[in-house]
């Protein structure tokens, strides 16, 4: 089978993989938004570019698993740098985030431009990680993305009660003797993983939107955490599929911006149509 209703088989598989990413990002992003750490992954997202470029330079290969592993290392390293800045300097959190974000993105751009200027074979395509581009993904790549996403959702499923309580009332959770800090780190680590698997679809610059917009859209419809997570997942899924479809149809259109605009449209509709919700966290 090479096509279904005129759509190439590969596009369908990629769409399914990216849909899984969108779903998982919505679910995990919900926990981040509830914990009021909506932008926790933004610095890490911009830093992934360094990892992608470095992984390509070190291995000389452009296989997605290799590049994403590099991205994950860079994302975790950027979070480590944030912790170090907090621990050892007077710089406040907002400035620290902006520093890590700006400088790591600058380093990423420096490496990418260097690769392009030297004409290293296969290096040109790395620019796709800036804004996302799903057309070049293979079925195996999509399988990897889907598998990681499924694992992330499974982890959330297992620790849902703990994560939700920590998100809503960290002091109470601490009073129960729960390791709030560990759960917080686990949450940030999960967000970093989602940012990395969201990279091929949404790109380093906009991938944060995957973990922010679907959750806040879902939040307009419900006051129940479980429902919100599920709904955010579905909104992320729909947005992701729309992005893949649009970039498959319109030439040169990056996937990331389309996904973001789709999610934003759903958010705007939610804001207008959702019943009975006006204020309150």
């Amino acid at each position: 089978m090479t096509s279904l209703a005129g759509i190439p088989y590969n596009t369908l598989v990629v769409a399914a993989g990216v849909a899984a990413v969108g779903f998982a990002a919505g679910v995990i992003g919900s926990l981040g938004v509830l914990r009021k750490r909506a932008l926790a992954g933004d610095a890490a997202a911009h830093a992934t570019l360094v990892g992608v470029a470095a992984a390509f330079l070190v291995t000389g290969r452009r296989d997605l698993p290799v590049l994403l592993l590099g991205a994950l290392v860079a994302a975790v390293a950027s979070l480590g740098v944030l912790v170090l800045i907090r621990r050892f300097t007077r710089t406040r959190d907002d400035a620290a985030t902006a520093i890590v974000l700006g400088v790591s993105f600058g380093l990423g751009i420096t490496l990418l431009s260097g690769i392009t200027a030297r004409g290293i074979p296969g290096g040109g395509g790395l620019e796709q990680f800036l804004l996302g581009h799903t057309a070049a993904l293979t079925a195996a790549d999509a399988g990897l993305l889907a598998a990681v996403s499924a694992a992330a959702v499974l982890l959330v499923w297992l620790g849902l009660k703990e994560a939700v309580l920590v998100a809503f009332d960290p002091d109470f959770a601490a009073a129960l003797g729960w390791p709030v800090t560990v759960i917080d780190y686990a949450l940030v680590a999960l967000v970093a993983v989602m940012v990395v698997v969201g990279l091929p679809a949404a790109g380093a610059v906009l991938v944060t939107a995957l973990v922010v917009i679907p959750p806040v859209a879902a939040r307009q419809w419900t006051d129940r955490a479980g429902t919100m997570l599920l709904l955010a997942g579905l909104i992320g899924l729909v947005s992701a599929v729309a992005g893949v479809a649009a970039s498959a149809v319109v030439p040169r259109l990056a996937t990331g911006p389309t996904i973001v605009l789709m999610a934003a449209a759903i958010f705007a509709l939610s804001l207008l149509l959702a019943p009975g919700r006006r204020r309150g966290a």
Partner: peptide, 20 residues
């Protein structure tokens, strides 16, 4: 109006505008 935290609200607005 939507009861969002500041960073979530900013995250929605600037990613959407940049995407546009």
């Amino acid at each position: 109006r939507a009861g969002l935290a500041e960073d979530a609200a900013a995250g929605v607005v600037f990613t959407t505008l940049f995407a546009a």
